[in-house]
């Protein structure tokens, strides 16, 4: 496994993924704000949460990059298209499995069962995170395709 490439390009790919999401968010296509979502689990102030969340996101990105590197090593091949394919699968899993779990673990995120006692202030993402705007699933897939493609280009298969 390409540990050196993983250490460097995991960070690069995650930063690029975050940048894509933020650019699309600034363009008004989605309200998905991953640094805020992750960071607000730890701190309440949105501005501080984004900083903390970005660091957490880098950590998660690095973790997932290890899976990508392991995948390339197992298949003994790498390339932007294979990385993008991994990215696509990653995005689908994130949208259908990981994101729906968030209301269960995030202390400041409401669930669809929230009642008047709820002190959560973040909206639940809903199916495919569509509560954050109709373009959210598309944006998520696009960002992960880029993430995977960067890793596929940069990492050696072994």
């Amino acid at each position: 496994m390409d540990w050196g490439g993983w250490a460097v390009f995991g960070l690069v790919a995650t930063t690029v993924l975050t940048a894509v999401l933020i650019l699309v968010q600034l363009a008004g296509r989605t309200r998905l704000d991953l640094p805020l979502l992750l960071g607000s689990a730890l701190v309440a102030d949105p501005d501080q949460a984004r900083v903390v969340g970005f660091a957490v996101h880098l950590g998660f990105g690095q973790l997932f990059a290890a899976f990508y590197a392991a995948g390339f090593a197992t298949l003994d091949r790498a390339g932007w298209w294979l990385g993008a394919l991994f990215g696509f699968i990653h995005a689908i899993v994130a949208l259908t499995v990981l994101v729906p779990l968030l209301p269960g673990v995030h202390p400041r995120m409401a669930s669809d069962r929230a009642g008047p006692d709820s002190i959560a202030v973040l909206q639940p993402p809903g199916p495919l995170a569509l509560n954050y705007g109709w373009a959210t699933p598309l944006v998520t897939i696009a960002a992960h395709l880029v993430y995977g493609a960067v890793l596929g280009l940069a990492l050696h298969p072994s």
Binding site: G28, R29, V121, L122, Q123, N131, G133
Partner: peptide, 24 residues
């Protein structure tokens, strides 16, 4: 206020006249 900020995010600085319950 939290809902208002979240819901109006995509249209800002314009404030939509009305939105769905999840801000669409």
């Amino acid at each position: 206020l939290a809902w208002l900020l979240h819901a109006s995010r995509l249209a800002r600085p314009r404030l939509p006249a009305l939105l769905t319950l999840h801000g669409r």
